[in-house]
Computed example of a mutant assay.
Amino acid sequence: MGILKVFIYRIRTLNKYLVYIFFIALISIIIIEGFLIHIPEWFTGASLIASIYTKICYAYMTSLIFYFINVHYQSEKGKVKTVRYIYNKLGRLTRYKDSLVFVIQSNGFSKTEEIYEGSDMVLNACKNINPQLSVSMYTTRQIKFNNYFELFHFINTESKVHIRDLLLLIDYLNIDIVESIMNIEDTLEQIDVSKGHVLANEDLKPWVSEINNYISACNKLDTLKYDKYKLHIEEHSTNLKKTKKDEVN
């Protein structure tokens, strides 16, 4: 990937408000030093105020350039190198949500029964599911559990492994992604309240709210991971294609 294109990628990943303020400062300097400096003061002290404001603009622009070169550029370079691992890990973390939804739909409704959408689906399915019964769930393989409490504990335990691995790379994680991961961990703790031990409940209605929160948190993470890392994925893919092309040549 060319230097200019990489430079453009790095600018696009900067906080947009920092970029807006930079251009406001730049335009202000051009207006003040290119035009206003040549006309009489509009009021007493205007030149002093303009001078102070111009120095602030210069200081901000210098600081942002320094931050961009010494901090942001290197940080984004690290994100590009780790994005494939992070993206796949985030996908594995939310994969259990899809498996859980499938289990709830399959066991909560008869074949002739209408399957509801969203939170209504979870509510109507959970009231028909006896958590004492054995259940199977498919992720990368078919796994059988003696009851739903074991299933919830498995999802919670496996998710914690992915969360731990992701937090080892917290320097390369977007803060919104980190918040979403923490929300998923929190909702799973509420679902896995028994830590795999059998409770006396005869249906899953007490878990409806927590399951819906878990589904929402996973859906939000799925949206965020594409939004926050789409430029890094694009750059990584371009670099990978270039590497393969160089190897062929």
Results as ranks from 00 to 15, higher is better:
Asp227Cys: 03
Glu158Ile: 12
Ile191Gly: 01
Leu167Phe: 15
Leu221Gln: 03
Tyr226Cys: 06
Tyr214Met: 07
Asp222His: 04
Gly196Ile: 11
His197Asp: 09
Leu168Phe: 11
Ile211Glu: 03
Lys220His: 05
Asn213Tyr: 06
Asp186Glu: 13
Ile184Lys: 00
Thr187Ala: 13
Trp207Tyr: 13
Asp192Met: 08
Leu173Ile: 10
Asn213Ser: 15
Ala217Pro: 03
Val193Gln: 04
Thr157Asp: 09
Asp171Glu: 15
Asn183Phe: 06
Thr187Gln: 07
Ile191Thr: 04
Thr223Ser: 14
Asp165Thr: 08
Asn201Gly: 01
Gln190Ala: 15
Leu166Val: 09
Phe154Pro: 02
Glu185Val: 04
Ile155Ala: 03
His153Thr: 08
Asn219Thr: 12
Glu202Val: 14
Ile184Trp: 01
Ile191Ala: 02
Ser216Leu: 14
Val178Thr: 12
Leu204Pro: 00
Val161Asp: 08
His236Leu: 11
Asn219Met: 12
Asp222Asn: 15
Arg164Asn: 15
Ile177Lys: 01
Ile155Pro: 00
Glu158Pro: 01
Tyr226Val: 14
Ile170Asn: 09
Asn212Gln: 06
Leu167Asp: 09
Lys220Gln: 11
Tyr226Glu: 08
Thr223Ala: 13
Leu224His: 00
Thr157Gln: 10
Leu224Thr: 08
Arg164Pro: 00
Glu235Gln: 14
Lys205Leu: 15
Tyr229Ile: 10
Asn213Glu: 15
Leu169Ile: 08
Lys230Tyr: 10
Asn156Thr: 07
Val193Asp: 06
Tyr229Gly: 05
Glu158Asn: 11
Leu173Asn: 04
Cys218Asn: 11
Asn156Val: 05
Leu188Ser: 03
Lys195Asn: 15
His162Ser: 12
Asn174Glu: 15
Val208Lys: 03
Leu199Gly: 01
Ser180Phe: 04
Leu224Gln: 06
Ile170Asp: 11
Val193Arg: 08
His197Met: 13
Asn201Lys: 07
Ile211Ser: 04
His153Arg: 05
Trp207Arg: 04
Pro206Gly: 05
Asn156Ala: 14
Lys230Asn: 11
His197Phe: 14
His162Cys: 04
Lys230Trp: 10
Glu158Lys: 13
Glu189Pro: 00
Tyr229Val: 09
Asn156Gly: 03
Glu210Thr: 09
Ala217Arg: 03
Asn183Val: 06
Asp171Thr: 13
Leu167Cys: 02
Leu204Gly: 02
His162Leu: 14
Leu224Ile: 07
